[in-house]
Amino acid sequence: MAQIVAGYGVSHTAMTIRKYAPGADAAQDRVHAAFARLRAEIAALEPDLIVMVSSEHLNSFFYESFPQICIGLGTQSTGWGDAGVASRDVSIAGDFAAHLLGFGVAAGFDLSWSVEPKLDHGFMCPLTLLRPEMDIPLVPIFQNASTAPLPPFRRCAELGRMLRAAITARPTEERVLLLAGGGLSHWVATPEMGDINADFDRWFLGRVEAGDIDALTALEVDRIDREAGNGGQEIRNWITVMAAGSGPGTTLSYEAIPEWATGMAIARLFER
């Protein structure tokens, strides 16, 4: 059967690439060094594919069709080239994606799907930093983190558990890497834009390190808006991947980067 070889969460702000000048800021350099370490760790795992749960930013979907959760199918996608992150072609693990979709729907999870959706920086920024070769096929899973109504966090965890069941039910032998994109605290186009709530971020990472998903699924959606910003809603992607594993996680890097207006985090979300 297929196996989950690891699960990670990483911030995905495009400013990590667009507004980075090597050597100009020690904290920014540390973020990039942490991405480089994770890049090596992922390479050593030799995954056959990446299942990435992230949020897009009204580039791929709009009001005429707006999924809460959407799986990308097909054979190849490409980046939007938005927000200063270069467009690249990305292979889609279409057969695996179709398996996740079919399993999920059969299990009562009403998933949307999109054939070869374009990918914005929510996907492309982490992939560019973690696998610039773009040679590992991807299953993109879009989760709404931007536009009300937002699903409760317990539903995001249920998605993760469904993904785990679907992956372990797969009869073939793929090595699957799970990757969550987004967060931590940041405010997008609000008067608080530029704020970072490092206290919240450290609390959140503490729950990751404790493997305490119950504390995270108990969070109220509005509380996240208040304490972590409208962009902080992307922690739901971390919760999904966290729920696909078990046991404590590990914070690999945390830096509050004012110039990027984001609490930048990188973490293993569960033990291998």
């Binding site: 930013h57 009204l58 405010w187 997008v188 186009a189 834009m193 530029g194």
Partner: peptide, 27 residues
Amino acid sequence: PLLLMQFAGAFRIEPMPVLGRQPDQSQ
């Protein structure tokens, strides 16, 4: 908010000075 960010990007407007806080006020 996301469309505001796209609009800012399309016209090369730095959004933080006009929508939010300057970095030196942001922690």
